[in-house]
Lab assay of single mutants.
Amino acid sequence: DETGKFLVLALYDYQEKSPREVTMKKGDILTLLNSTNKDWWKVEVNGRQGFVPAAYVKFL
């Protein structure tokens, strides 16, 4: 149950560059965990948590 969690859509592919980031593919649906930083949002994708560039995702 994803109640209270926001979902975001990956607009572009992103390859993680550090262990704190996660890789996503364009079209992936991600669970948004934290968006307090304007540049990097914490998400969960494929069972992994990490950061992606905020400009690469949008709210569903």
Rank of each mutant, 00 (worst) to 15 (best):
Y56W: 06
D13I: 02
F59S: 10
G27D: 06
V8H: 03
D39M: 11
Y14F: 08
I29T: 07
L32G: 02
D1T: 14
Y56H: 08
N34M: 07
L30T: 01
L7R: 10
V52G: 00
K17P: 04
L33F: 04
K58P: 01
D28S: 06
R20L: 15
T3D: 14
T36A: 12
W41D: 00
A10P: 01
E44D: 09
P53Y: 02
G47M: 05
L9E: 13
G50E: 01
K38V: 11
A55F: 09
D28R: 02
V8Y: 09
E44H: 05
M24H: 01
K26Y: 05
L33R: 03
K42C: 12
K58D: 11
Y14E: 01
Y12S: 10
R48A: 07
M24C: 06
G50M: 04
V57D: 00
N46E: 11
M24I: 15
Y14D: 01
N37S: 09
L30Y: 09
V45T: 13
Y12D: 08
L60C: 10
Q49R: 11
K26S: 07
G27C: 06
K5P: 13
A54L: 02
D1E: 13
T23S: 15
D1G: 14
K38H: 11
R20G: 15
G47H: 05
V52M: 02
K26L: 05
T36D: 15
L11G: 04
V43P: 00
L7I: 10
K17T: 13
N34T: 07
G27K: 02
L30V: 08
L60F: 11
V22W: 03
W41G: 00
S18F: 07
L11M: 12
S35Y: 11
Y56Q: 06
V57P: 00
K5C: 12
N34Y: 06
E21I: 03
K17M: 13
F6D: 11
K25Q: 09
P53G: 02
E2F: 05
E2C: 13
V57R: 00
S18M: 07
K25N: 09
T3S: 14
L7S: 08
Y14T: 01
L33T: 04
Q49V: 15
F59A: 10
E44Y: 06
T3M: 12
D1L: 12
A55I: 10
W41C: 05
T31Q: 10
F59D: 08
A54G: 04
W41L: 08
L32R: 01
L30M: 15
V57W: 01
A55K: 14
T3Q: 12
T31R: 14
L33E: 02
K26G: 05
W41V: 09
R20T: 12
L30A: 09
P19L: 10
K42S: 07
K5D: 10
W41R: 02
V45K: 13
T3E: 13
W41P: 03
N34F: 06
V52A: 03
K42T: 07
M24R: 00
G50V: 03
E44T: 07
K17V: 09
S18H: 11
D13P: 06
D13F: 04
K58Q: 14
L30R: 00
V57H: 00
D28W: 09
E44C: 09
D13M: 03
Q15Y: 15
G47K: 05
L33D: 01
V22Q: 03
S18D: 13
P53F: 02
L11C: 08
T36N: 13
E16M: 12
P53I: 03
K5T: 12
R20F: 15
P53K: 03
S35L: 07
V43Q: 00
L9Y: 13
T31V: 15
V43K: 00
Q15G: 07
V57A: 02
